[in-house]
Design a protein around this nucleic acid. Structure first.
Length: 276
DNA sequence: CTCAGATCCTGTGCGC
DNA sequence: TGCGCACAGGATCTGA
């Protein structure tokens, strides 16, 4: 479900709810469902978070990290994960965090592609899922044309699959990959090694712009994504190509094309995006 | 190492 | 109305 802008929006929503009160909120206990997500949480770790305070929230790639006194909770939303504050139990609720303010913070995930983990702060420094991550286009100023060009200059796969590769650049998923390539005027099937340095510079700017604008809009609600508050995102109203197969290009009115590229449906304008 | 494809799941929407 | 199928915003594993 969520790409960088959606995860960032959810993280900010959780910040408003969990970190704004005068008294620090602490965790009473955490319960998990019997069905496992992509990982399984060590029960011994889970039992130690009782009494720990919620101190801070950060986003690492598409992960949300809840910082406690001695531990960190790690959450990846997969395709269909969501967090909400509600006492009622719903189908597909997999993690319930009972809070000292008498609220329950609940993780729901029908497809169970998400990750929920509990690690010590020391373990976080070498957390396996974090060690190979590429640069963050929003948070890390080292993500520039020089970096991306060096990463892809010898790669012979379609550029779209490489900007979705989290080991190169994090946060870009299937929607914003198509959108960024459209903005940059680059055909998604272009072999990465064929891109010029100038094109890569433009692509880097396009990725930053697409993600930044989507954060401002509160993320894209294509089917079921919701902000923590429950409201829809707004960015889906500003998409140019994603999901717009057979519609007219906003600028040139050519018919938007679509094709599965490395397993993911991809959208582009045949006039505005040239294949190198 | 690199790359394409399969895989983990459930829900939804479409065509018949 | 009901059924089967294709597809869905991600990451990881396998085998070529």
């Amino acid at each position: 479900m969520p790409e960088l802008p959606e995860v960032e929006t959810i993280k900010r929503g959780l910040e408003n709810i969990l970190l704004q009160s005068r008294d620090k909120i602490h965790i009473l206990k955490i319960e998990t469902s019997s069905l496992r997500l992509r990982n399984s949480v060590r029960r011994s770790q889970l039992n130690k978070v009782g009494g720990q305070s919620l101190l801070n929230l950060t986003r690492k790639a598409k992960y949300i990290v809840f910082e406690l006194n001695d531990f960190c909770l790690i959450s990846h939303l997969g395709m269909t994960g969501s967090w909400r504050i509600e006492k009622d139990l719903r189908n597909h609720d997999h993690v319930r965090i009972f809070l000292s303010n008498n609220e329950i913070l609940t993780y729901n995930d029908p497809r169970r592609f998400g990750v929920f983990d509990v690690v010590t702060k020391r373990e976080l420094e070498h957390y396996p899922r974090f060690t190979a991550l590429g640069l963050d286009p929003i948070l890390d100023s080292r993500f520039n044309g020089e970096y991306l060009f060096a990463q892809i200059r010898k790669r012979f796969s379609p550029i779209k699959s490489l900007i979705m590769n989290q080991q190169i650049v994090v946060g870009v998923g299937n929607i914003y990959a198509s959108e960024a390539l459209y903005l940059a005027g680059i055909h998604p099937l272009t072999f990465a090694a064929n891109l010029t340095r100038v094109q890569v510079d433009i692509l880097v700017s396009a990725i930053k712009e697409v993600l930044f604008d989507a954060i401002v809009c509160g993320g894209s609600t294509v089917s079921d994504y919701r902000q923590t508050s429950g409201s829809s995102g707004d960015a889906q109203n500003f998409l140019f190509v994603y999901g717009k197969s057979k519609e007219n290009c906003f600028y040139c009115e050519a018919i938007i094309q679509s094709q599965v590229i490395v397993g993911r449906n991809s959208f582009w304008c045949p006039e505005c995006q040239s294949l190198m």
